[in-house]
């Protein structure tokens, strides 16, 4: 099980400076570790599009931000994401929590979020990878985000909730 301490440790290893986020009930469990961290700065945005633009500004200024949000907010943030990815071409990593994913694949949820998240990420033509915190490990998350960094690309981690 990939816990909050391990997740935040990965962020630190990657040299992230800011986590810009809107939490959901799953991602929100990282908060205590993020708040307590001595160097990572947690920025709370009011909407997901704002989070993406704020992170883009941080990158322009030389910081190394990471954006964290739920898929519902990712749907809302479409234009900000399009702008950062395809106009500004800023290599911004995102973690997008996919609400109800586990229950959905087991046939226990009618939530439409899992149905639409991956097709929408594909539509934006950006690389992505799934991380299932019940099965995957911190080194896998580290390798994924490190690859996004080395390729200087926007990359989305779809976080199975």
């Amino acid at each position: 099980m990939l816990d909050s301490r391990q997740v935040v440790s990965v962020f630190q290893t990657l040299g992230m400076t800011h986590i810009v986020w809107l939490p959901d009930s799953h991602l929100g469990t990282w908060e205590a570790e993020l708040v307590a961290h001595p160097t990572l700065k947690l920025i709370r945005a009011t909407r997901e599009g704002e989070a993406i633009a704020l992170a883009a500004g941080l990158w322009l200024g030389g910081a190394k931000p990471l954006v964290v949000m739920q898929c519902t907010g990712f749907f809302e943030a479409g234009d900000a994401f399009r702008n950062v990815v395809h106009d500004l071409k800023i290599p911004l990593p995102l973690i997008v929590g996919v609400r109800s994913y586990t229950a959905f694949v087991q046939g226990r949820s009618a939530d439409t979020c899992p149905q639409f998240t991956e097709p929408i990420v594909r539509a934006w033509n950006v690389p992505y990878i799934w991380i299932d915190p019940t099965r995957d490990t911190a080194p896998m998350l580290l390798d994924t985000l490190r690859r996004f960094q080395s390729e200087r690309t926007v990359g989305v981690v779809l976080w199975a909730e």
Binding site: G49, A55, G61
Partner: peptide
Amino acid sequence: SMGQGIALGLGLALA
């Protein structure tokens, strides 16, 4: 992305 200028500027100012 219309409406995101302040957010972009805030990120710059924080960095």
